[in-house]
Amino acid sequence: MIEISHVNKWYSPTFQVLTDCTTNVTKGEVVVVCGPSGSGKSTLIKCVNALEPFQSGDILVDGTKVNDPKTDLPKLRSRVGMVFQHFELFPHLKIIDNLCLAQEKVLGRGHDKAQTKGMQLLERVGLKEQAQKFPAQLSGGQQQRVAIARALAMDPIVMLFDEPTSALDPEMVSEVLDVMVDLAREGMTMMVVTHEMGFARKVANRVIFMDRGEIVEDAAKDDFFGKPRSDRAQKFLSKILSH
């Protein structure tokens, strides 16, 4: 579903953020990407739907080359759901309109059809009653659930999560993770940048560990948590799992 091969990205000759990153995500797989801050994990996931350009290497999503100038990027992106750390709901639109905007303007769905779909998804994330409110009237956890619903409204073939719980108050983390766990169990293909190792243990198939722009470890979940091969991954794990 996602094939990342030998991706390099640098901002200047001396500042390389991604170094020879190669991995892939197959259909129905849940891959968690972790690593210390500044390790390039958010950058990597943003390269997948070409929100960030990269200088060399290739990324294919469902067989379409992301870094090909001929690729219809808006069309490709509309099939790749993305959830951001800071939710990024559109503050001037009601919750339901946040869900309908791209359905109507990108997919060309009729207003009624988009509304119906939007309401179904809001019900699914438990926020049907909030449909007529504005984003600023919702809590962080609720906003992030809306953001997930907004991405799902596009019927994505894969979902990307960029630290979806990092900006949340602790008591709101689980309501968002619950939605993500359900999604994973339903067979959604997911690439998730997160520090939530509980989530990784529960639903991930594979865990990728990144450090200083490199993929240091790319292992099945049990192998990763059992005994990481690299020192850096071991150190990282011992730090975040110690409490």
Binding site: N49, M82, F84, E88, F90, A102, K105, V106, L107, M154
Partner: peptide
């Protein structure tokens, strides 16, 4: 506006 707003719009497939 937060940089993420433009990203979110782009990520949804808006031109």
């Amino acid at each position: 506006l937060p940089r993420g707003q433009k990203m979110a719009a782009t990520a949804l497939g808006l031109t």
